[in-house]
């Protein structure tokens, strides 16, 4: 059985995955012995749904500014389209001969293909959504990288104006993503890292204020203040990098399965 790493993908594909598995088992147990019913109508319903997906998918490709999505989505669409064709062929063959073994195999192959193609498509789409969150995380990293050159209150105010909206978006988006994941270990890491970022952010700003204040008072102790600020910056950077790493994980931890 496939493993789905988000609740949305799981809710869409898990029921059909179970049914396809059951069909394969029933088919093997029956050893091609029974007549298949007329599947023209349900196959037509799948074809219509596939045509709609192709249309929507092409629109998504045209409208997207994500080059990786534009590159990956077409092959998932072709896969679903090809599987739909197999189902149509199976239906036509079964009309001629309801006992046809090759038609049954086409039916199973087509059903599996629809499942795999839809899974690939949802995965492409999901990865694109993750890349959007990562872009926001990288903005925060870019802002953190300039913390060490802030030497006046005016610059600090601008730094905060830049950092705060990005940090809020990261917090909101990573928080929502965490709730979407089916893998508890990944969820826990994201929650922990996000909490750390939220805790460290005001402490970093405070350390930057102290550094600026020390500079304006003659600079005694500035090296230690800068060291403290840099330490906090590196801690926050580390947490954001860990968030980026975990956001990209889709595989399951073997230990958890055990």
């Amino acid at each position: 059985m496939p493993v789905f790493h988000t609740k949305t993908i799981e809710s869409i594909l898990e029921p059909v995955a179970q049914q396809v598995s059951r069909l394969v088992i029933l088919h093997e147990d029956a050893e091609d012995g029974s007549a298949m019913p007329d599947l023209e109508k349900p196959v037509q319903a799948v074809s219509r749904a596939v045509m709609n997906l192709i249309k929507v998918g092409k629109e998504t490709i045209n409208c997207s500014d994500d080059p990786i999505l534009k590159q990956d989505l077409p092959s998932a669409l072709y896969r679903v389209e090809g599987a739909s064709r197999l189902l149509e062929e199976a239906s036509a063959m079964l009309k001629q001969d309801p006992y046809s073994g090759p038609a049954r195999r086409k039916l199973i192959e087509g059903s599996r293909g629809i499942l795999q193609g839809t899974s690939s498509l949802l995965l492409c789409f999901d990865e694109s959504e993750v890349r959007k969150i990562i872009r926001e995380c990288k903005k925060v990293l870019d802002y953190l990288a300039v913390a060490e050159v802030i030497e006046s209150m005016e610059d600090l105010v601008q730094f905060l104006k830049d950092l705060s909206p990005s940090l809020s978006r990261v917090s909101r988006e990573v928080g929502a993503r965490e709730k979407e994941l089916t893998h508890q270990v990944h969820r826990d890491i994201l929650v922990r890292c996000l909490d750390q970022v939220k805790t460290l952010a005001p402490i970093l700003i405070c350390s930057m204020k102290i550094y600026i204040h020390i500079l304006s008072e003659g600079g005694k102790g500035a090296a230690e203040a800068a060291e403290n600020r840099d330490y906090l910056t590196s801690r926050m950077t580390g947490e954001i990098l860990e968030i980026i790493r975990v956001l990209q994980l889709t595989t399951y931890d073997e230990d958890e399965w055990e």
Binding site: T8, Q19, V20, R22, L23, A35, P37, L39, P42, S111
Partner: peptide, 29 residues
């Protein structure tokens, strides 16, 4: 998202098809 809705429709239609195809096999077993 429209693409999620389209994927849901495919999953539902495929489910219905597979159920119909399974019914005949189940009767035999």
């Amino acid at each position: 998202e429209v693409i999620l809705e389209a994927a849901k429709s495919i999953a539902a239609a495929t489910s219905a098809l597979v159920k119909a195809a399974s019914a005949a096999q189940r009767e035999l077993i």
